[in-house]
């Protein structure tokens, strides 16, 4: 079996096809733990895991924490507002101080791209990137791959449409890289102001219309419009965005009848995604959340050395 030899999980870019398959298989085997009455295994007993979140997060932070606890690791989490960052401590110093307390894994979310890489350069613990700036969000990309694999059996040859703010979405970046790596054809569409230059190099095909992007799609991934970006002149209004870039029942007719609808959350209902689609049977948005725990359990397990035993 493939040996997992990554110390850190910094990006989807760093992972090979084989790595991804191993993570997904491992996650699938861990998924059952979460449906037991006693949701706990001793696998990571005695391991120390610190979550270092410099940006608000509900889903990802909780998902990592549940994953770690179900594996019996000791978890600690620090939010930016309570950390020394507000006292002016640098990221490198914060990390060095944490390292002095000998954690096994540090999970970091940060608004600046590349922050996990900076940490990895300076400290001895393993680093997991829980989202950095507009760079990557590898665990989200992996849970998306897992969800699609579960539903479709295989990713190879699927048409995946990603709609919305590609430029500011680290999820989109990890998804484009991950789905392309696993053999899917990724098509993207959104306001041109939100399609970054050179995105084709990550493997995506840029479409000229929503219709073209969704035509015969197996998967439709909608991205959150970040309302805090409204101050930049990127598009005129949420109303116009919803009319021309929002995914609704009418436009979904272009996709395959069994197409999946996904969203990394949190959803702006009625903006990027119409409520009756979000709640329809084709929506796997909550499966994504469930799989998030399993994928993160797999990541913690594999980088702590579980891969050696396989």
């Amino acid at each position: 079996m493939h040996r997992f030899d990554h110390k850190h999980i910094l990006s989807m870019e760093d992972l090979s096809r084989e790595d991804i398959s191993l993570i997904l298989q491992t996650a699938e085997s861990f998924k059952e733990i979460s449906s037991r009455p006693i949701k706990k295994v001793p696998t990571l007993r005695g391991k120390t895991i610190i979550s270092l979140f410099f940006e608000p997060s509900t889903r990802t932070r909780l998902s990592f924490e549940i994953a770690a606890k179900r594996m019996s690791a000791d978890t600690f989490s620090i939010a930016a507002s309570t950390s020394s960052a507000v006292k002016g401590e640098t990221l490198v110093d914060t990390a060095k101080n944490l390292t002095a307390m000998q954690p096994d894994i540090i999970i970091i979310r940060h608004s600046f791209s590349g922050s996990p890489n900076l940490l990895a350069k300076h400290i001895s613990a393993s680093i997991i990137n829980a989202g950095d700036g507009t760079h990557e969000h590898p665990s989200q990309g992996l849970l998306d791959l897992m969800t699609v694999t579960e539903q479709k059996g295989d990713i190879k040859g699927l048409k995946v449409a990603i709609i919305g703010d590609i430029a500011h979405s680290r999820v989109a970046h990890s998804d484009i890289i991950g789905f392309t790596k696993m053999g899917a054809n990724v098509h993207i569409y959104g306001p041109s102001t939100l399609i970054p230059p050179g995105i084709e190099n990550l493997g995506a095909t840029v479409c000229c219309s929503l219709q073209e992007a969704l035509q015969d799609a197996d998967v439709v991934m909608t991205l959150r419009i970040q309302k805090e970006r409204q101050k930049d002149p990127l598009f005129p209004s949420l109303r116009e965005y919803a009319s021309f870039f929002g995914v609704n029942r009418r436009i979904m007719e272009a996709a395959k009848p069994d197409a999946l609808v996904m969203h990394p959350g949190p959803i702006n209902r009625g903006v990027e995604l119409d409520p009756d689609i979000a709640d329809s049977t084709c929506s796997v948005i909550l499966d994504q959340v469930t799989n998030g725990v399993a994928v993160r359990m797999a990541l913690l397990y594999l980088i702590i050395g579980g891969g050696d035993k396989t």
Binding site: G114, H135, H173, P196, P197, G198, N201, L202
Partner: peptide, 13 residues
């Protein structure tokens, strides 16, 4: 510099 690399690294170009 703005381009494919800035997009890949998630850095503003």
């Amino acid at each position: 510099n703005e381009g494919a690399l800035s997009t890949k690294l998630g850095l503003r170009g």
